[in-house]
Each structure stands twice: as C-alpha cells, then as structure tokens.
Design a protein around this nucleic acid. Structure first.
Length: 620
DNA sequence: GCCGTTTTCGGCCCGACTGTTTTCAGTCG
C-alpha cells in the first residue's frame, strides 16, 4: 500500500505541474484522477503491474497511464515526471497549497522570479507582488493572511474532532428564527476518516423575499460570531467561510501584524490548530439538490452530472433541470426543476435509488443494483471489545454493562488487556482467572443483558498469542490484536497476523493494522491473504470505531466484503463516552459497503452466542 | 490522457464569489 501512496503522490504532483506549465487541463485532471484510483486500490498496485489488461480496466487508467504505472513499479521512477521536475521548482508546488494561489497565479509568480514560500513572503514585503497582473491590494492582503494559516490549512483533522466542531455550529444555528433544518454535509457526512473542512447547510423557511433575506442574514451573523471562530474568510448572504479553533479558542483573533513587536506578517493565531467551516443558506425548495452538491464527493458529483446530461438534464445545486441548450443557468431563468427538494427525488429522476452519503465516492455506486442495504447504527446490538478498571478502562464491569444495556445492547463482552500490555495494566493469568469469575458474577447480577468474559489478547511479534490455550479456552470471546512491533515489514506482519487468524480460539482480529489516523501508519500486511484466511477460519475482522483508529479502514472493509469475511464493529470502550464513537465505525463499514448480516454485532443474542461457542470446538 | 446510450475523434460538470475590472479571469468546492 505504501507503493500506492507513493505513486499517487507522483501522479498528483504531475497533475499540479501540468497545470503550472499551462498544459492541457484535461490531461492534468486525467493524472489527478489516476492518482485517486491508485490511492483507492485495496491491493498493492505493483501486484497488478504485470497485467496491463487489469490496469486499463480500472477507472481513469488507459493505455498510456498503465505504461507509466508499470514504469514506476519496475524502475521506481517515471521519466515524464523527472523531466517535469527538472523544469518546475519544487517550491512552486508548495505555494499552490496556499489558498488563493491557483495555477495561473503561481505561474505569474514564477515568471516574476518567485519560486518558493520564502520568495513569496519577500515579494509581499517589498511590494513587488503588487506588480503582478490582476494582483491588487486586497489580493495581496488575502495571500498574506492565507500564509499565516497555510501550515494548518493543508492539514486534515480527525473525524471525531470535526464532528464535535460541527455540532457547536449546528446546535447554535438550529435555535434561530426561520431556520427549518441545519445539516453538516461534505466529507463529514460521508464519514471519511479525515476531514479537510466542514460544510454546514441551513434551510430557511418560505416567506417573502425580504423575510427570507432577513433570516439568511441573521444566520450568517450568528455563524460568523460563534465563539471559537478565529478568522472570517468570506461573508456573503448565501455563503460564509470562517476558521474555527479546534482547541476551543475563545473570542475573535485579529489577523493584523503588530509593528511594535517588529511583526510584518500577522502573528500565529491563538488556540492552535483550526479548521475551515463553510456555511450555505438556502431556500427549502433546493435543499435536496444542495445537500447532494455539498455532500459530494466531487468525483461522485461529476459522475452524477455526466449521467444527467446523458438523460437530457443538467444538475446543479439548485436542482435537476431539463437540458434546453440555453447558456444562462436555468434557475436564473425561472425554469422549474424536475427535482430539487429532496435527495430521494433527485436520485429517482436520475433513475437511481437513494445512495447513502457514505457510499458517494465514485467507487462504482452508480452501477449498484437495487436498493442499498448497508449496516445501520440502529442494527448494532452488541459490543464485543471493552475495557474495565481491571486494565486501563474507567468503568467497573457492572457500570460498563449498565451503560451497554442503556444503549439497547443485548450483549457486552469484557475484554481487558493481556499480560504483555503492561502499560495498559494487562492481566497476568491469575488475575484473568479471577476476572473471569467476577464477570460471571456480574452477569448473574445485572439482568437484561449478557456479559461475556473475554480478553483483548496481544498478538506477539511472532504471531503467537499472549496466553496459553488452556486459559483462552475459558473465555467466551477472544479478540486478538497487535499492539507492539507495529513497524514490522509487510512480509513479517503478514505471517504474524496469519498465524493469529488461524489460531482455533480467536474470534475477532482487533484493529488489524494498528494504525492511528494522521499519526501512525501501522502494519501493511498483504490484506488479500489476511481476508482469505479470515474467511477460511471464520474470524471476524474488526472495524475499531474510535475515530483515532478506524481500523480496518474503508477500502479494507470493501476488500474484505468481497472476500466474504465477517466483521465486528466495536468501540474499544475505555470510558462511558466511547460508546458514542459507534457511529464512526458504522460509517466506516458503510464506506466499505458492509451489510448488516455480515456484521456479527447485528446478530440476535442466540445467533451471536452460538457462533462464539462454536469456536475451538470444531465448528465455525 | 481518458473514453464511448449520438462518438475511435472530439468532447471532457457547474455555479458562486472575489477582485480587478468596466465584461471577466481565477479560484474554489
């Protein structure tokens, strides 16, 4: 998978450089699209390099691109890329990351001798940037301000962090007069594991033009003045953009330099990392098409619009309109849309079932036959991975069980850490034996839910488990997880995890790669081999729901689905609020097209308990 | 550079906003 990322980065850079060099923009976007395809592969692209027919069967990969991929996989380089790199200074690609600095602008900078961020800062200070075409005072001020946030603006944040930030705006705007609905859209609604910016849509109740404008104005004002907003980027009636402090910074930060401190550029904003939040205020009549538009993904939208054109329509955020050859946008000519108020209506008019937002990634969802039946939050009836105060959790066995019961679960498995996880206060065999007894006692005591005795057993570096079989046999649930040795090479990691999967007492492979989103890549085993073994041995693959893990990730889920695996979506509960992370695990499952029947947490108590008991006794 | 429900050539999604402009280019999502 590391190869996929490296190749995707190269193709992405090629696309950027083509834009800079003023080459055919469609050629550039073809490279960008190929980059996305390569990045989205569940298997290592180098395993496909010998099979050109399979390569060209991938979306956006034609004969020429396939040759480049083969070249990269066999020689580690692409001649065209090297040639472009020799022409285009690397610093220009960095400047292109700065908001407001697109290819045309950066090309003009290049022609003026600016080739990196430092040069850009100098050109701002000595005023030479102003001499560039279409570059006035305001444009320079904007770039100046953008540079302050440049380091942060390229960064993405965790799904859980972004969701919490979005909730601050949603709950605030919901209370305003004239507001019908407030919904997050964008990658947050799609449940992506990292979020670049937050999109929030507000629907305004019908009324006179004046009333609606007043409501829209009030919404925009409330949005911009939300505590924690550190910068207002744009503010119109229909659209506003701000930066919001992810550390909950209070009050408004003024992006003005203080000359007394010798500052010529604005100081770093308070509150640490921040995220851009975009607001759109819309009439009720176009809420469905606008939700589709702003939920994306961009690539999914492009496919939808292409489909619309083929069917004689044009699709935009205002609705689905008949194609009439008139150049002026239909909504500006008073043309009535065929569909616009709900997403269902727009999809239906395009001959499609409603597609779950989590599946809108241009990964074949438009060709999906029949209605979507993905696993849903309400399907989950069991939590099979949780920790108590016996290891590193915050709740007692009874507290944990009561909380699970309150959330409507029929089963909770207590799976504290095993002995090698000493940092997490893992249980030595004697303690585990006593813990099993305590769990059984609690199971007697707490009515209305089944409490299972389990363990999250370390998969040691050589693939063996952290307890002897004699002890594992006494457990109702065995979750085997890698915790240490997460920098092993792929071949070693594959061997290690295969050994654990083939162990007859293992039910669930916990957070299989050990990755931490935006922090640690984790293991890169051969996923195809893992999933084939998972199916063979009847081991469920975990989707760890914590937003810091989301492991398996969406693409792995899709591959494991195709391989016929079972899944467990678990919160890895350490404290009460961790149960709330379930939605992120479910979203990740949905992104891999996971159905409820393949997810053991959705099964009835009888079916689940029977499946667990069958392990190690000859059945699967 | 890709691709085919008019196509193996000639297309390739769509609108809002901003700033620099007097009619539009560039950027963004």
């Amino acid at each position: 998978m590391a190869v996929n990322q490296a190749l995707a980065a190269v193709l992405e850079d090629m696309a950027k450089m083509m834009e800079l060099l003023g080459e055919n923009s469609f050629r550039a976007s073809a490279h960008a699209r190929a980059a996305r395809t390569v990045e989205g592969l569940a298997e290592d692209v180098s395993t496909l390099a010998g099979d050109k027919a399979r390569l060209t069967s991938l979306d956006g990969i034609g004969s020429g691109m396939a040759d480049k991929i083969v070249e990269f996989c066999t020689t580690g380089r692409i001649a065209d890329y090297d040639a472009m790199k020799a022409k285009v200074p690397a610093g220009l690609l960095e400047i292109m990351q700065v908001p407001g600095c697109g290819p045309k602008t950066v090309k003009a900078m290049w022609e003026a001798g600016i080739t990196d961020i430092a040069g850009l800062k100098r050109a701002i200070e000595d005023g030479s940037l102003l001499k560039l075409p279409r570059m006035g005072e305001k444009a320079v001020a904007k770039i100046k301000e953008a540079l302050v946030f440049a380091a942060a603006s390229g960064q993405r944040t965790w799904l859980g962090k972004a969701a919490a930030a979005a909730e601050v705006f949603v709950s605030r705007l919901k209370e305003l007069a004239g507001v019908v609905r407030v919904e997050p859209a964008g990658s947050l609604r799609r449940g992506k594991d990292t979020i670049g910016d937050i999109d929030i849509l507000v629907s305004i109740e019908d009324g006179t033009e004046k009333q609606m404008a007043a409501h829209a104005h009030a919404v925009a004002e409330a949005f911009r003045s939300t505590p924690g907003v550190v910068q207002v980027i744009a503010s119109g009636e229909g659209k506003s953009s701000v930066r919001y402090s992810l550390d909950g910074g209070q009050g408004r930060w003024k992006p003005e330099p203080n000359p007394e401190k010798g500052e010529s550029l604005p100081p770093t904003p308070p509150g640490g990392p921040s995220i851009q939040v975009d607001l759109r205020v819309l009439p009720r009549a176009s809420f469905g098409s606008a939700m589709m538009y702003f939920t994306g993904s961009k690539e999914h939208n492009v496919r939808l619009r292409e489909r619309a054109i083929k069917m004689g329509y044009t699709l935009n955020e205002w609705g689905l309109f008949p194609l009439d050859g008139n150049e002026k946008p239909p909504q500006q000519r008073g043309v009535k849309p065929v569909a616009s108020e709900t997403e269902e209506a727009v999809f239906k008019a395009l001959g499609l079932p409603w597609i779950p937002p989590t599946a809108r990634e241009d990964r074949g969802e438009l060709d999906h036959q029949g209605p979507w039946k993905l696993v849903d939050l309400s399907d989950i009836k069991a939590e099979l991975h949780s920790h108590t105060t016996a290891s590193d959790g915050a709740l007692s066995i009874v507290e944990l069980a009561e909380e699970a019961k309150r959330r409507g679960f029929h089963t909770i498995a207590v799976t504290d850490h095993s002995q090698s996880s000493s940092i997490a206060n893992g249980l030595k065999p004697d303690r585990l034996r006593r813990h099993i007894a305590a769990v059984k006692e609690a199971d007697e005591q707490v009515k209305g839910i089944t409490i299972l005795a389990g363990s999250e057993v370390d998969i040691l570096a050589d693939g063996s488990l952290d307890y002897k079989d004699e002890l594992l046999e006494q457990l109702d649930v065995v979750v085997a997880s890698p915790h240490a040795g997460l920098t092993q090479d792929p071949a070693t990691a594959t061997k290690r995890l295969l050994k654990a999967i083939s162990h007859p007492l293992v039910h669930i492979l916990g957070h299989p790669t050990g990755r931490l989103v935006l922090r640690r890549p984790g293991l890169s085993p051969d996923m195809a081999e893992l999933f084939a073994a998972g199916r063979e041995h009847g081991v469920a693959m975990e989707i760890n729901a914590h937003w810091m893990r989301l492991d398996l990730r969406d693409l792995h889920v899709r591959a494991a689905m195709d391989a016929g695996c079972l899944f467990a979506i678990d919160c890895d509960v350490h404290e009460r609020d961790d149960f709330d992370n379930l939605r992120y695990g479910v979203a990740t499952g949905q992104r891999g097209w996971l159905t409820a029947e393949r997810c053991i947490n959705t099964w009835s108590a009888a079916k689940l308990h029977k499946w667990l008991k069958a392990k190690g006794r000859g059945g699967t």
